[in-house]
Write a protein that binds this DNA or RNA. Structure first.
Lengths: 160, 160
DNA sequence: AGACAGCCTCTGCCTAGGCAGCTATATTGC
DNA sequence: GCAATATAGCTGCCTAGGCAGAGGCTGTCT
């Protein structure tokens, strides 16, 4: 394995030049933009995820929700609390397995969930304005590659 | 102005395919990796920023810190509280302008601040393992482009 | 049957950010 | 000089996530 190119060194490290700083800023701005768009529906940036996941059948319980968002179960419980208190989802204790609380959208919740993909599509298309298809594919490829590197580094650390 | 390519549509929107989801995940993993590395020095992911900015002279007061991190002044006050209670920085009321509280690193703070650029460089180089210089430059270019799009959309909204 | 492991949910305690409002100080304009 | 304005810092109230532990339920193994 050849030694990889060294893009950053401790000496002369400058925050503004860092790809880490850029990525953080981009994600922050993206969240802010989605939050602004969702605000008219009374939703926050965190709260649309459960709505969408439940609607798409990707999660039916709080535990599943926590797994799909790589989040904490405790945090998810409280997030569901807040959305439930807005009357958008309902908790229904499962009869088959009494540990489980199934989550279901209310009529109001369905209405808002239907808007979410529109908002996300618009925001992302806006962010990618002027991108060629090649650039878009390249962007996704590079993010995937970076993600794989971080994950494999984690595994190495865990087994050491 | 020609109509931009439409990368996403509301109908058939799938979270896993979204560049937004990818970017969020990458930033999250990046923060987690830095957090793990900083933990041995008793620091969190949020707390290294003030240390580094103060050391590099990019910020000398809480207000400056808030501006350079695009953050809230109230949150910054409390962040400084937590770092101060760890004995890493000191608050020194300015004599020239008595509104201002200058921030200074303690000896302990200097020691930890010196380690930060090393950790950041290592983590970022690890994330970019196998990237060619062209890919790295392309990556930064694409992130910048996306960021510019989001910002100009914000401005349009503000003036409408 | 009873012990056990595993899972789901919830709670308490921590860090953390956004927003609004307050006080003290400084600057500007009249 | 004095009023209006701007700035710095702080605080209270909200949402939000991470971690650890408790309690309930289910399936399994002995």
């Amino acid at each position: 394995m050849k030694t990889p190119h060294t893009f950053y060194t401790a000496k002369g490290y400058r925050v503004e030049d860092s790809i880490g700083y850029l990525l953080r800023t981009l994600t922050q701005q993206l969240s802010q933009t989605v939050e602004n768009r969702m605000a008219v529906h009374g939703m926050t940036d965190a709260q649309w995820k459960p709505l969408l996941f439940i609607q798409q059948g990707k999660a039916t319980t709080a535990a599943e929700l926590a797994r799909t968002t790589c989040g904490d179960t405790g945090a998810t419980t409280r997030l569901v609390d807040r959305i439930e208190s807005k009357g958008l989802i309902q908790r229904v204790r499962s009869e088959a397995d009494r540990r489980i609380v199934n989550l279901a959208l209310t009529a109001e919740g369905e209405k808002i969930a239907a808007v979410i993909p529109e908002v996300l599509s618009e925001v992302l298309n806006g962010m990618l304005a002027g991108f060629t298809t090649d650039e878009y594919e390249q962007f996704k490829k590079l993010v995937h590659k970076a993600l794989d590197n971080l994950n494999s580094a984690d595994e190495k650390e865990a087994t050491s």
